[in-house]
Design a protein around this nucleic acid. Structure first.
Length: 106
DNA sequence: CCTGTGACGTGCT
DNA sequence: AAGCACGCCACAG
């Protein structure tokens, strides 16, 4: 685990997010020690097992998901987030979440 | 070995 | 307030 300098660390961090809260890519990257590698978090979640990783708790700085592959996951994300007590609103065609209210703090 | 890309972030215009 | 451009790190070809 100490050598977890790659996606592994990110996955562990995402799984560490408390239920009912969300975190931004930059937040995860910063905690992992790579405040400038927010893109890596996104890429990591892109290749991760969305069946095992609560990727829906990880969103961008705007509080929305810019997912290029918003094929199916978007609807599922809404279900998962609302199921955890997080309010998801639709704004300009994108799901918006109140970061100041749900953003996770380590 | 080098180049391109990507679920992002911040700054400037 | 909104949009555009650059920078960051890791991995694939």
């Amino acid at each position: 685990m100490s050598e977890a300098n790659s996606y592994t660390e990110i996955y562990q961090m995402v799984q560490k997010i408390p239920r009912g809260q969300v975190a931004t890519y930059g937040q995860i990257a910063t905690i992992c020690g790579m405040p400038q590698a927010a893109r890596l978090v996104g890429l990591a979640l892109h290749v991760c097992d969305i069946q095992k990783i609560p990727w829906h708790r990880v969103i961008n700085r705007r509080g929305t998901i810019s997912t290029t592959c918003l094929e199916h996951p978007v609807a599922m994300q809404k279900e998962l987030l609302e199921r955890e007590g997080i309010q998801v609103k639709k704004k300009a065609g994108a799901w918006t979440i109140d970061l100041r209210k749900y953003q996770w703090q380590d």
